[in-house]
């Protein structure tokens, strides 16, 4: 009565086949990640030292360290954040909490999502035209950071809007029914409960910003600078561009240096991502509804 029939056998073997297929695909996906990280660590780790991180490059960049590029990347990211976070969060709050749900709002939302799909080289040219030339910032940290900010704005807006919309409507209704204004509701209830998601979006943006090359190439990052930037109107070196330079532009570059630069860049990004994950887990533990 309970013996397997031919149909059972057929269904089960098909089920096993698909499990194998899907599992195989997943393994295939992990493989490149392991290979990339493994190669970087294997070939790049030997050059990592205190000097590599904190000294200026010497000998036509074939020796010394990468400090100006590391510092430059951090500066670019910070200035980009200062521009994109207030702007993006404000826009997202407006779109999610105030804007009426009509065709115009929906059109804006679609435009924002499309903006995220614009290739970074296009943003670079826009930055060159707008910030470097039109606003006369010159090729500078400011121009490069603003270009990065424009590029990552959609990520901030979408992440913020989604975390605002994840706050249950019932909380807003409770507030409104007590005579709270929209702003009181946002300030006291909605934002505190959305802050986890907003932070996650911001940190994701940071890691993306840190790795971008094209948008900063024409707008503020340079191959080599003999001094550190003194302000936002100075040019700067950056890790991503430096990696490109040491990999392709400098003859007789020791093989380990580009791997070392790449390793530092990836470590920076992973570090930021893990901070994001840790923060999210911490804040989620505190949240309850």
């Amino acid at each position: 009565m309970f013996e397997a029939t031919r149909i059972n056998h057929k269904n089960l073997s098909r089920q096993n086949m698909f499990r194998l297929l899907l599992g195989g695909m997943t393994a295939l996906l992990i493989l490149p990640v392991i290979l990339v990280l493994g190669t970087l660590i294997y070939k790049g780790a030997p050059v990592i030292s205190f000097e590599f991180l904190f000294a200026n490059p010497t000998n036509g960049m074939t020796a010394g360290g990468i400090f100006p590029a590391l510092l430059g990347t951090i500066l670019l990211v910070i200035v980009a954040l200062l521009a994109s976070v207030p702007l993006g969060v404000a826009a997202a709050i407006y779109l999610s909490e105030y804007a009426p749900d009509n065709w115009f709002t929906r059109a804006i939302n679609i435009a924002i999502i499309n903006l995220a799909g614009v290739p970074s080289i296009v943003h670079a040219l826009f930055g060159l035209g707008a910030f470097v030339i039109f606003f006369r910032f010159g090729t500078s940290i400011l121009a490069a950071s603003l270009t990065l900010a424009i590029m990552t704005l959609p990520v901030v807006i979408v992440a913020t809007r989604e975390s605002l919309q994840a706050v249950p409507m019932a909380f807003r209704e409770a507030c409104w029914n007590m005579g709270a204004t929209r702003w009181q509701t946002i300030r006291r209830i909605v934002l505190p409960n959305a802050v986890t998601g907003i932070l996650t979006g911001v940190i994701l943006e940071v890691s993306r910003t840190a790795g971008e090359t094209a948008p900063i190439m024409f707008t503020g990052a340079v191959f080599f600078l003999p001094f550190l930037p003194q302000g936002v109107f100075d040019q700067t070196m950056a890790l991503s561009l430096h990696l490109f330079v040491v990999s392709t532009q400098v003859p007789e570059m020791p093989e380990a240096v580009p791997y070392g630069v790449a390793l530092v860049l990836i470590a920076l990004v992973l570090l930021m991502n893990s901070v994001s994950i840790a923060l999210r887990m911490y804040l989620r533990g505190k949240k309850k509804w």
């Binding site: 019932a170 409770a174 709270a180």
Partner: peptide
């Protein structure tokens, strides 16, 4: 809305402390 209070089908306390829930209406 202050003069005419509303209680809902599904209890909807705010995700803050008991004390802050009581003080919410007063504070705003």
């Amino acid at each position: 809305r202050k003069q005419v209070g509303m209680v809902f089908q599904r209890p909807n306390p705010l995700p803050i402390s008991i004390r802050d829930n009581i003080l919410f209406g007063h504070n705003i």
